[in-house]
Design a protein around this nucleic acid. Structure first.
Lengths: 107, 107
DNA sequence: TTGTTTGTTCAATTAATCGGAACAATCGAA
DNA sequence: TTCGATTGTTCCGATTAATTGAACAAACAA
């Protein structure tokens, strides 16, 4: 099994989080994960949270950046990789940032 | 005189704002402009708000992106170009976003 | 073992960024 | 007006990053 590497919250930088969330595809993923969380979901597979029509290699790279930035956490569940938002940790480290971005009305 | 083009606040996108603020040099500029504003300053010249040691061409490009994203406004004052943060407009359109980023502790 | 599903990694193309050099705008002084 | 100094901008080549098809890997069921 391949282990996913997640940064400790103390090593998460505003830099990386903003870069990660600046991309519309990654923001769509994060929005889907936030919605899932609000519905008491237990996380979503890569495909489930990603915008359709994106090549899977691209989707995979986006998740990779989100994990490296400390925005999401991944665990393997069978053949799928389940991602969850690191919501509480992020909100403790960067108060108000995630809500401000998620609640913003996109163009 | 060269006129600077600034998007109407209604055309400012989260996309562009996040891309603009994802860069550390541009964030440093925005922090300097926010500090100037807090001290009732009337704006800062390009060089005054930019981190030192950056080539002026690079600094100019950063300001260009900040203007295009709708984050700052520019007016020429003699030989200088004075920039100010579009603070109130941004906060009305994306509530809490700018404060969350400005108040975040950088790595 | 074989086939299916879900993601990752590799490698090549494409796009964006950086920064030196030349150019432009403004102003003060001769 | 003309020259020089100051402050930014634009151009363009070089470096760097993002995208994605194709091959590979991991888990599971039959």
């Amino acid at each position: 099994m391949q282990c996913f590497i997640h940064p400790d919250i103390k090593d998460v930088t505003l830099e990386a989080v903003l870069y990660a969330l600046a991309d519309p595809a990654r923001r769509a993923i994060v929005r889907a994960l936030a919605a899932d969380r609000a519905c008491e979901g237990a996380g979503l597979s890569c495909h489930a949270a990603a915008p359709p029509d994106l090549p899977k290699a691209t989707v995979s790279q986006h998740y990779s950046k989100l994990r490296a930035a400390g925005v999401v956490r991944a665990t393997r569940k069978g053949v799928s990789v389940i991602h969850t938002l690191r919501c509480d940790e992020l909100n403790a480290k960067f108060p108000g940032l995630l809500p401000a971005i998620l609640e913003a009305v996109e163009a």
